[in-house]
Simulated scan of single mutants.
Amino acid sequence: MGGRWEPAGRLREHCPRASPAQHLAAAITIGDHFFASSSSTPDYDEYHQAMLRHLQVDASALLLAKLRRKVPTPVFLETHPDVMETPCFAALQPTR
């Protein structure tokens, strides 16, 4: 895997009424197992379909396209706490 990755946020954004939080966590676990059971990076639509099946949400072509779209850098940047204090991290922050 590479790039920006935040499946829980994507599912919450595009399936807000799909399920309670504990079902969302279980769906993410199903997605994690889906990736772990593959010897190479599987198709992202199949990954999303596995999670959506658990949430009992129709995996329409439009929804799958929304879930796999690229996320702009300013929208999501996950770092470990020890990185946040480095000059490199500071340089990545948008100016206001």
Rank of each mutant, 00 (worst) to 15 (best):
L67F: 02
R69L: 10
F34L: 04
E13Q: 14
L92T: 00
M1A: 13
A90D: 07
L55F: 04
R12H: 15
R68T: 12
R96K: 06
L77I: 11
E6L: 14
C15V: 02
S39G: 09
E13V: 07
L52R: 02
P16H: 04
T73H: 13
F34M: 06
S38M: 04
R96Q: 11
S37L: 12
E85G: 15
V71F: 03
Q93V: 13
M51L: 11
S38I: 01
D32I: 09
C88I: 15
C88W: 14
P16D: 00
L62Q: 13
H48T: 02
P94V: 13
H23Y: 14
H54D: 07
P81H: 14
Q93K: 10
G3V: 03
P81N: 10
T86E: 02
P7S: 09
E85F: 10
M1K: 15
G9C: 04
T73D: 10
D45T: 09
R4G: 08
L62M: 07
E13S: 12
G31F: 00
E6I: 14
A59N: 06
T86H: 11
L63E: 01
L64R: 02
E78L: 12
R53V: 03
F89V: 02
H54E: 05
P42N: 01
A61F: 01
P87E: 09
E6N: 15
P20L: 12
K66E: 04
L11K: 03
G9I: 08
E78K: 09
A91V: 00
H33P: 08
F89S: 00
L67T: 00
E6G: 11
L63N: 01
T73G: 08
P81G: 06
L67Q: 01
S39M: 04
V71W: 03
E46R: 11
H23R: 12
C88F: 13
S19T: 06
L92G: 04
S37I: 07
A59H: 02
A25M: 05
I28L: 15
F34G: 00
H14Q: 02
L63D: 00
P74G: 01
A27E: 02
M1Y: 05
P16M: 06
P81D: 15
L24Q: 04
R4T: 11
R17W: 05
L67M: 05
H33F: 12
P87D: 07
Y44V: 06
R96N: 09
L11F: 12
